[in-house]
């Protein structure tokens, strides 16, 4: 752990991510406003003591929407990546451990999925299923597990031949035990790195989907849809354009620095 925090990238990334996590978790305490409370008379107010980051077109407090938006955007990121990682770890360890036809079938499937312009696929599925937070998380997860699968498989292939695994086998441990107790925990480093980078990517995907009208739907604030609503007020209300954009920028930067730092710490390249 000490080693981890000696890395500067990790520290910077972690601080940024942690800050936004705190905002997201304590959203209710931090602000006195309701993120969906409309006050038509207060529309488009510039930042002030009352409204730290101003108000939007329907008179809602931007700071409040931003911290509640952090909740949504970060959950989209974490859950999507969680799904992808889960699928990736399961398929990857099956493929890497059992080899044979199962391995080839899984890896062919990975190849096929990797060929798709993923954003096309996402777009089609979300447009068809209707864009709810739930669908967005799942679909992003279902279209981004391929990298993890490959990673885990490769790790397991190399671990399998190590002495301690061979020893477990000799002692008569079951396959499941070997996979769950040894192989997966020992390949967690690279997975952590790719998951960290994945969270940032998923948040970006949500904002791109919002741009096309397929992101998280109103009145629920997400950083993506806040940014889209701000598009219309470009030149009239700078605070609407700047703050959500900066929030996305810093969060993703944070996750990337963290991921990059972890990569250096674990000495994993790929």
């Amino acid at each position: 752990m000490k080693k981890v925090f000696r890395n500067k990238l990790v520290v910077v990334g972690f601080v940024i991510v942690f800050l936004f996590l705190v905002l997201a978790v304590f959203a209710q305490i931090i602000t006195k406003y309701d993120p969906t409370a409309i006050v038509v008379e207060d529309a488009l107010l510039a930042p002030s003591a009352d409204h730290w980051l101003g108000t939007d077109q329907l008179g809602r407090d931007v700071f409040t929407r931003l911290v509640f938006g952090a909740r949504i955007s970060l959950s989209v990121g974490f859950i999507a990546v969680g799904i992808a990682t889960l699928i990736g770890v399961i398929l990857g360890s099956i493929a890497g451990y059992y080899r044979g036809w199962l391995d080839s079938a899984i890896m062919r499937f990975v190849d096929i999925m990797l060929c798709f312009p993923v954003f096309f696929l996402l777009l089609a599925v979300i447009a068809f299923l209707e864009p709810s937070i739930f669908n967005i998380m799942i679909v992003i997860g279902l279209t981004s597990w391929m990298g993890v699968t490959r990673l885990i498989r490769a790790e397991i292939l190399s671990l399998k031949e190590r002495e301690f695994i061979l020893a477990e086998h000799a002692l008569g441990a079951s396959s499941a035990r070997v996979i769950l107790r040894h192989l997966i925990p020992n390949s967690i480093g690279p997975v952590l790195v790719s998951a960290t980078l994945g969270v940032g990517a998923a948040i970006l995907v949500e904002s791109s989907l919002s741009f096309l009208g397929l992101g998280v739907q109103p009145p629920t604030p997400s950083w993506g849809n806040m940014l889209i609503e701000a598009k219309a007020t470009l030149g009239v209300a700078w605070w609407l354009t700047v703050f959500p954009g900066v929030a996305i920028l810093f969060t993703i930067l944070g996750f990337n620095l963290l991921g990059e730092g972890l990569r250096e710490v674990f000495g994993y390249n790929g």
Partner: peptide
């Protein structure tokens, strides 16, 4: 390079 990656492109 990370800023480039982290900016929502349409923004």
């Amino acid at each position: 390079v990370f800023i480039g990656f982290a900016m929502p492109t349409f923004w």
